[in-house]
Simulated scan of single mutants.
Amino acid sequence: MAAKAGSGDTPRRWSQQVTEISHALDLEPGVFSLSDPREIARSLQRSAEHSRQRKAGAFQSAMSMLNFYVNRAGRKLPAERRRCLEAAKDELRAIYGRPRHQQG
């Protein structure tokens, strides 16, 4: 059952709750507001590698959380912020030795 807006202590948006208190990863506060894509990737790496609740590998868990945040922000995400987060995906790939996304 979905929480109603203004219903006390339950969050208004389930996506906000997932980002803040995910059972998949314990994210460092403010990770998605960092300005350096490498720092975002390193923070997600630390969270994924220290998590005991994740169901997939560290890389997949970190990338999934980053994709979740970008997808939930949707059109409201400013272009500059989106570029930073997309660059963080490439940094995350580099950290885990995965091929970087090719611009095309």
Rank of each mutant, 00 (worst) to 15 (best):
M1E: 11
M1F: 04
A3V: 08
A3T: 12
A3S: 13
K4W: 04
K4E: 08
K4A: 04
A5C: 03
G6Q: 11
S7K: 12
S7V: 08
G8K: 15
G8H: 14
G8I: 15
P11N: 09
P11G: 08
R12V: 15
W14I: 15
S15A: 13
S15F: 14
Q17R: 13
V18E: 01
E20G: 07
S22K: 09
H23P: 05
A24P: 00
D26N: 12
D26P: 03
D26Q: 14
D26C: 09
D26S: 15
L27C: 13
P29G: 10
P29D: 13
P29M: 09
G30P: 04
V31D: 01
V31C: 10
S33C: 11
S33Y: 08
L34A: 04
S35D: 08
P37L: 11
R38T: 10
R38I: 07
E39F: 01
E39S: 06
I40W: 01
R42M: 07
Q45T: 06
Q45S: 02
Q45N: 02
Q45V: 03
A48V: 06
A48R: 01
E49F: 04
E49V: 02
H50W: 06
H50E: 10
Q53V: 07
G57I: 08
G57F: 02
A58I: 02
Q60K: 12
A62T: 03
A62H: 01
A62F: 03
M63L: 14
M63T: 02
S64Y: 00
S64K: 03
M65D: 03
N67Q: 14
N67M: 13
V70K: 05
V70D: 03
N71G: 07
N71W: 07
N71R: 13
R72T: 15
R72W: 09
A73R: 12
A73V: 12
G74P: 03
G74A: 15
R75S: 06
K76L: 11
K76G: 10
L77Y: 05
A79E: 14
E80M: 04
R82F: 10
R83K: 15
C84F: 03
L85R: 08
L85S: 10
L85I: 13
A87R: 14
A88N: 10
A88R: 08
K89N: 05
D90T: 13
R93M: 06
A94F: 03
A94T: 09
I95K: 00
Y96V: 02
R98H: 13
R98I: 04
P99R: 07
R100H: 04
R100P: 03
R100T: 13
R100I: 13
H101F: 12
H101L: 13
G104P: 02
